[in-house]
Amino acid sequence: MSPPPLEIHDLTVAYHKKPVLWGVDLVVPPGKLVGIVGPNGAGKSTLIKAAMGLLPVSSGWVKVFGEPVAKNLRRVGYVPQRESVDWDFPVSVMDVVLMGRYGKLGLLKRPTKADHDKARECLDKVKMLPYANRQISNLSGGQQQRVFLARALAQESDLYFMDEPFSGVDAATESAIIALLHELRAAGKTLLVVHHDLPTARNYFDMLLLLNMRVVAFGPTEEVFNYETLQKTYGGRLTILSEVAEAVRVKG
């Protein structure tokens, strides 16, 4: 049997000796669309950053397709939070999407015509091709998110990490993104998506990872998405609990 796309063992991450993630164990099967949900400060972004080796870990290890993550970064795609970059930066939409090809290009090599074609194809998939030559600050929030997605597509990876791709986007972009995620899953890719909104989480994802510093639950959505585990994840936060109750009611 081929090794799983992502295997995390006893991962602990700390800022200034204060743990943010604690003893995370996780094995993600291939071809799944996995939502990572949990309250603010639960360590959702930290988990995917640590899984890619972007943060120093206090203990534990991460394997991607059976290899340490640093060796297999080419098979990993990443969509960071939209707010993590300066959108006034003097680059065009095309420039940003081409960055997705840099990992495969290696040092000193320039993007070739094939890379440009690939970037154009990815822009077309997110319906942003007409904007290819725009400077990125002239885009709406949803369009910026699509550009980031196109860049991740251009990475042609097998395992994707996405940090809140649905935050601050319009409804049209949200449904476009979800269609794209389904398409990727159909192509056999594995996707881990940090998600904020509980009611939609139930509909969007095959599997859910409920996180609050530790893994509260991980499994197929219909098994995990119930009042008990959600209460464990979110503690006594009433507003969210009522939202959850509503979501559970709709489901039942």
């Binding site: 890619m52 080796g53 972007l54 990443y78 960071p80 970059v85 860049r151 990490f161």
Partner: peptide
């Protein structure tokens, strides 16, 4: 432009 992404592509 995006140091986090740059690290993620190695």
């Amino acid at each position: 432009f995006d140091a986090g992404f740059a690290r993620a592509v190695g």
